[in-house]
């Protein structure tokens, strides 16, 4: 995903000299090619995330298009007020790119996890939030972020997720994608954990349960009409995210359901009001928190029995 982002950024910087790449000392080797090709469009701010975000706002106020990139947790938490006042309040054309979505940095633990970022940033006015799950989504959404005039947060994993889109399937920014049809329940997922949700659905299929799988790559603005139509059509509704169950995708879907009197029982799968436990690679940490394919499968099974 990181490489997809960098490839697209390279192309954008090549065609548009307003595009700048900002990093906070996080991008060894991977940025070499960019730096060599466009030295004037590359700024390393050092270990200074808040400053980078605000300086990006200053650059955008002069008509440039900065993409400020570092680990998502340092952007969403440490830079929070800078993002709020200098980017969002002033509605400036800054792209904030948070790498290491969810528990990607499994070895490092919660200091490097982005597991509350959507909740915090979803409340920021003017901010578009994009959360790609597959390389194709990342490719389309990075370009969409460039074209969109306004603040954008791109939540990126840096793994090599499977491409769940068929070649002829489109990613439409702003509109969730239905990846598989199904009649027994619907699962909304966002980001790379879509792959684990897909694994869970494959297991459910063996049990004879047919599920609809939807990738919500645009968290904000959320296509409420689409979400509501799907929720009205299904009796059982599940959300899956590599994030706290509070304020993220599950929270957003719950808001749409409740406000429209949908009245159905929703299951939010994610971190249950705790920091992720355990160390290891991403998949090991997901497993330790019941968020690997089998863990998600078991949680959905339980829900189906209760619902």
């Amino acid at each position: 995903m990181r490489n997809t982002y960098l490839r697209e950024l390279y192309k954008l910087a090549e065609k548009d000299k307003r595009v700048l790449s900002l990093i906070a000392d996080n991008g060894m080797i991977v940025y070499d090619e960019f730096r060599e090709a466009f030295p004037e469009q590359y700024y390393n701010f050092g270990i200074s995330e808040g400053h980078m975000v605000t300086a990006a706002a200053g650059m955008a106020s002069c008509g440039l298009i900065p993409f400020a990139y570092t680990i998502g947790s340092f952007l969403a938490y440490r830079s929070c007020e800078f993002l709020r006042l200098d980017v969002c309040l002033q509605n400036l054309n800054v792209k904030i790119v948070g790498i290491g979505a969810g528990v990607t940095y499994g070895y490092l633990g919660p200091t490097h996890h982005s597991t509350e970022d959507i909740a915090i940033l979803r409340a920021m006015p003017n901010l578009t939030i994009l959360s790609p799950a597959t390389p194709k989504e990342a490719r389309v959404l990075v370009n969409y972020a460039y074209e969109h005039d306004g603040p954008v947060y791109i939540r990126l994993g840096n793994n090599l997720p499977a491409e769940l889109y068929a070649e002829d399937m489109e990613v439409i920014p702003g509109k969730p994608t239905t990846l598989t049809e199904g009649k027994d329940l619907v699962v909304f997922a966002t980001g790379e954990i879509l792959n684990q949700a897909k694994e869970a659905l494959d297991l459910l299929k063996i049990d004879g349960v047919s599920a609809e799988l939807i990738s919500v790559h645009t968290i904000k603005p959320l296509d409420e009409a689409f979400v509501l139509e799907v929720c009205n059509r299904h009796k059982r509704i599940v959300t899956v995210e590599e994030h706290s169950i509070f304020g993220g995708l599950g929270g957003a879907i719950a808001e749409v359901m409740a406000e429209n009197g949908n009245g159905k029982k929703l299951q939010r799968i994610g971190l249950q009001d705790r920091f992720a436990k355990g160390y290891g690679n991403r998949l090991e940490v997901l497993k330790a928190n019941d968020l690997d394919g089998k863990g998600i499968y078991a949680q959905i099974k339980k829900y189906l029995q209760e619902a």
Partner: peptide
């Protein structure tokens, strides 16, 4: 915030 914002502007003007 002001100095950081100004640094961004100064970088942009220099660029």
């Amino acid at each position: 915030h002001g100095l950081s914002f100004a640094v961004g502007i100064a970088m942009a003007e220099k660029y």
